[in-house]
Nucleic acid binder design. Structure first.
Length: 975
RNA sequence: GCCGAGGUGGCGGAAUGGCAGACGCGCGGGUCUCAAAAACCCGUCUUUAGCAAUAAGGGUGAGGGUUCGACUCCCUCCCUCGGCACCA
């Protein structure tokens, strides 16, 4: 099986050779050192480039490429990550060759729960495990030929890194953005720590899958909510996948609405509700307070006291899960109080129910069952009236004809009334155009059977009662008249009117039910002076009116909550705060950073922070600050470490600043960021928050860190399931690299499909790429021996087309189709007995270089040596390097001309233009014939004549009605 | 329930209004070989007719629409995946 032993192409030998050379010659390094002027080496010597592509540095010319900070887990880099790193690297290599100043770096998100949990299990210090994992990751990254600048490598668990994580915390603290408060938090009883909302997935701990419970605790928070508005709006500034922008916006959950005051009958108290649908206020038939709302206790009547207390008590005991289980089954208790609707003075009952959350809005809502699903369910359960106040703008006044046997369909048709449906009993549902309303009322008045009533629903709901004596009563439905209508209706319908409430009666009619929920773009009905207005306009007018009366104000609310950042764990950056003897908080002085994480800690979880028990940690605190002083013992959420790492890459050894103003200006913001979609509502949000805080504090002059962002898809197992130990379908890139080579692994990862799609791994597919590279190697070696002066025209043309296609694919991250293009070229080349000229071979190697860095370097050096026109110096240097590599004497300062610092080939415009084309001939849009090898730019007459000749039998002797000619592509003859 | 992405051969996928299935895998046949592997060559959406070259028809989740022409644009529905989930 070992393909590596197949004749000719030995990837292990080739790849390990070039890895060594690149590393020793610091091909992709040194930039940082130069920037810091720590190295006197002449940059020409250090980073030799071909021709004059080494453009001076400018902001337009820089390209900061950022692969997502990996979490170095014990099981190593997996295929899913690899795809992101490979894609970044291909882009970086491509950009570098087009003359951009590229910065690509790597680091380690080294703190965190899994390492600590593993440490607990094995009783080995997390630092040891983590450093081992990092060493492993480093090897994996290197084996995939990722061209990062290793001088910039950082690890978040190193004091010179977390010093600045702590600095960021202090910056937040000084700016009033870090604070402590007690509130209900997500608690994982297995990890024994608090979790951020973002770390709770499906109500479970994202790390260990334990059900998360709610617990009241005092915790550190960052006031990210202060930035909610900007975080939401500034998403306009970035080029991210649209769906991710939407997802982050939804997470922030900005919604515009109003706070509206409802006074409480018989008291001077009032309830402030928050709602986005003030337009539906005429439909409010109850108020709901969250059980946690303190107002509940104040307003509850003596009679309801016991019941309400019991309910509050019961709901406080409910876990989050129990509340969810009752999703469909609403619970609640009447408080005995009534609120007064400020728009129509309607008195409506005040309830308390746990479907209203205290943590959002004001902890109180107005219940509008006609236009809100939850209110509808609640009203249904507790028999609360339902008033329809928004109608779809396209629906005419409607009615339902009963007791109207004397009215024929003809009668209705005559006055323009449309029958939209019939019930089983033959009753008719009708639509009444506005202009027919009067005629319709007349018809009803005349022909309705005495003892029946009819109601129609339009801008207002109108009831027409025909008494047994033939007299007619017309009543519009308003809060004032509804009682009267109820009375009449029960008199008329008797037992049939068993709801005893006209609103309920209306809602039970099914066409009414269908429009009961949200209808944003509807027309207000049954809404007094606002009837007839559009929903959005009506909403504005209603709020404005209430505002003028001091009863409402426009408000914006967010779903986003403040970020909980303290963790009762060991393996994280200590929070740089100290408590004095009274328990008051003081920040650690910046010059005393970092607060070192001690190594002498028993990290077994007890629910108390392990640092509580470290003597070393508190050592010297009392001496420095005073008796009774002690350090904060919680550590920071690891997401704080990863919220700013891209700044540290720019200046990783700076011990005065997190990064110098000069390098920040030079490199930021990030031009190209690839990472997983799982970070949209976590890391990406936090990083944007950090950046905005830095901006406000004057450290930077931009307020979005990642201008361009794309997600790599997930690599699934061969069985189409998520790669996981559980399914035994995990593929380790290191195995693939060993067996098939880094070039093959890279190219296959791209070849599998579009970058952003989820794709199953197929080891059989790898073979195809491997064959391609082996074939290329064999072909190229044969070709070099031949040293052709000129490539055959067809190859020359195809080569130029390939350059064009690959260039555009690289710009657009469509690496999958590039790989296909390379294969097509090699297929064609293989068929050509004459082979390629060395010059063209070199060009082909160059465009393949970002994809397959090893094999192209190997072949490029061979071509260089063989090229008759290459200068002796280059040739000598190349051979010298090769020799030094083989005898192991290569030193850092040695250099060679690498393919990876060559300039990207340009294609010849003239050559990519086809001289002949195939023209498709369609008859009635159906393909019939293809005219091969036609001259480019043929006129219609010419083509039409030939086409008609060729498809004669399909024309059936008919004369064409129409001929569509698309130049150089297609002709369609319509008969 | 709501929001988002997607549905194309046996499989991964290509084609963003103009020749559907590029490229690769798999499969079938062949060359080489004592044999096998490797390598290379030919074929491979499907139905019907034909010994065959070939010819005619159908086909991109389903149905409708726009267009000379639709995998591609519009509407309705179905299915899969991801996210959110009492956020008023």
């Amino acid at each position: 099986m070992p393909v590596s032993s197949e004749k000719g192409y030995d990837h292990q030998k080739i790849e390990s050779k070039w890895r060594k050379v690149w590393e020793k010659s610091k091909l992709f390094q040194g930039q940082y050192l130069q920037e810091q002027e720590l190295d006197e080496v002449n940059s020409e010597n250090q980073r030799p480039r071909s021709e004059d592509r080494d453009l001076p540095f400018s902001h337009e010319n820089k390209c900061y490429i950022l692969p997502q900070l990996p979490y170095p887990s014990g099981s190593g880099l997996h295929m899913g990550h690899s795809e992101g790193y490979v894609a970044c690297d291909m882009y970086a290599r491509y950009k570098r060759m087009t003359g951009k100043k590229v910065l690509q770096a790597i680091g380690w998100d080294a703190f965190g729960l899994p390492a600590e949990n593993y440490a607990i299990k094995t009783n080995v210090h997390p630092r040891i495990n983590t450093d081992n994992a990092i060493a492993n990751f480093r090897e994996q990254i290197k084996s995939l030929g990722i061209s990062v600048d290793w001088d910039r490598e950082v690890g978040s668990h190193n004091p010179d890194y977390y010093k600045w994580t702590q600095w960021f915390f202090l910056l937040m603290y000084k700016r009033g953005l870090a604070y402590r408060k007690e509130q209900s938090v997500n608690w994982c009883s297995s990890c024994k720590t608090v979790l951020a909302n973002e770390q709770v997935v499906d109500r479970k701990c994202e790390r260990c899958d334990t059900q998360v419970i709610q617990k009241n605790m005092e915790q550190w928070y960052l006031k990210i909510t202060k930035y909610a508005d900007r975080l939401s709006k500034d998403l306009d500034k970035v080029d991210w996948p649209e769906e991710s922008i939407i997802r982050q916006r939804d997470w922030i959950g900005r919604s515009e609405g109003a706070e509206i005051k409802f006074s409480i009958k018989g008291t001077s108290k009032s309830i402030k509700i928050f709602g986005t649908r003030a337009d539906t206020i005429f439909g409010a038939t109850f108020i709901v307070l969250s059980p946690e709302n303190p107002l509940v206790k104040e307003i509850t009547s003596a009679k309801q006291q016991k019941e309400v207390d019991a309910y509050i008590n019961q709901s406080s005991k409910k876990t989050e899960l129990e509340r969810i289980r009752q999703d469909k089954d609403k619970t609640g208790v009447f408080t005995g109080a009534y609120a007064v609707n400020p728009v129509n003075n309607r008195e409506i009952p005040v309830w308390t129910a746990d479907y209203v959350l205290m943590s959002y809005g004001t902890g109180a809502v107005m219940g509008v069952p006609s236009h809100d699903k939850r209110d509808f369910d609640f009203a249904g359960k507790f028999n609360i009236p339902i008033i329809h106040v928004v109608a779809r703008s396209d629906l005419l006044p409607r009615s339902f004809l009963m007791g109207a046997d004397d009215i024929t369909d003809e009668d209705l048709k005559k006055i323009g009334v449309k029958i939209s449906a019939r019930t089983k009993d033959g009753d008719r549902k009708i639509e009444i155009p506005e202009k027919s309303l009067q005629k319709y009322e007349k018809l009803i008045t005349e022909k309705l059977i005495p003892g029946y009533w009819n109601e129609y629903v339009g801008a207002e709901t109108v009831f027409i009662f025909k008494h047994k004596d033939g007299s007619v009563q017309r009543i519009e439905l308003t809060p004032e008249t509804e009682k009267k209508i109820d009375t009449l209706a029960s008199k008329f319908a008797g037992e049939n009117f068993n709801n005893g409430c006209v609103w309920k009666w209306l809602a039970d009619n099914d066409w009414y039910k269908n429009v009961i929920v949200h209808e944003e773009y509807g027309i207000l009905i049954n809404s007094g002076e606002f009837s007839g207005l559009g929903s959005i306009e009506g909403r504005k007018k209603i709020i404005e009116k209430l505002e003028s009366e001091g009863k409402a104000e426009f408000t914006v609310k967010y779903k986003l909550r403040d970020w909980s950042v303290s963790r009762q764990r060991f393996w994280g950056a200590p929070i740089p705060m100290v408590y004095d003897s009274k328990g008051d908080l003081h920040p650690v002085d910046e010059k005393d950073l970092p607060v070192i994480l001690p190594d002498d800690v028993d990290f077994k979880p007890t629910g108390q922070s392990p640092l509580t028990y470290s003597e070393k940690f508190q050592d010297g605190v009392e001496k420095k600050y005073g008796k009774g002083w002690h350090r904060e013992v919680d550590t920071l959420d690891t997401f704080m470490c990863s919220s700013w790492y891209y700044y540290r890459y720019l200046d990783p050894r700076n011990d005065k600043e997190f990064a110098s103003p000069e390098v920040l200006k030079r490199w930021m913001p990030v031009d190209f960021y690839i990472g997983g979609p799982e970070h949209v509502t976590g890391h990406l949000l936090y990083s944007r928050f950090f950046t905005k805080v830095l901006y406000d504090a004057g450290y930077i002059d931009f307020d979005e860190p990642f201008l361009f962002h794309r997600h790599q898809g997930m690599i699934l197992g061969a069985d189409n399931k998520k790669m996981s130990k559980r399914w035994g379908n995990v593929i380790n890139p290191i195995d693939v690299v060993k067996e098939y080579g880094g070039d093959t692994a890279r190219m296959y990862l791209m070849f599998m499909g579009p970058l952003t799609a989820d794709k199953p791994w197929n080891t059989n597919g790898v073979v195809g790429v491997r064959k391609f590279i082996a074939r290329l190697y064999k072909l190229a070696l044969g070709n070099i021996g031949k040293t052709k002066a000129q490539s055959p025209v067809n190859l020359k043309v195809l080569l130029n087309k390939t350059i064009k296609a690959v260039s555009s694919d690289c710009e657009n991250l469509k690496f999958n189709t590039s790989v296909a293009k390379f294969m097509e070229f090699v297929n064609e080349w293989e068929k050509s007995p004459k082979g390629l000229s060395l010059e063209d071979l070199e060009i082909f190697l160059k465009i393949l270089a970002p994809f397959a860095p090893y094999i192209t370097e190997e072949l490029f050096q061979k071509v260089k040596e063989a090229r008759v026109d290459s200068n002796a110096d280059v040739k000598n240097r190349s051979s010298a390097v090769n020799e030094k590599v083989s005898n192991g004497s290569l030193k850092g300062k040695d250099h060679f001309i690498s393919i990876h610092v060559q300039s990207w080939p340009e294609y010849d415009q003239a050559l990519v233009k086809d001289e002949t084309v195939d023209i498709a001939v369609q008859v009635n849009g159906k393909l019939r014939v293809v005219l091969r090898d036609h001259r480019v730019g043929s006129l219609q007459e010419e083509i039409e004549k030939e086409a008609k000749e060729q498809v004669k039998k399909h024309l059936d002797g008919k004369t064409p009605k129409k001929v569509i000619y698309i130049k150089d592509r297609l002709i369609n003859i319509v008969v």
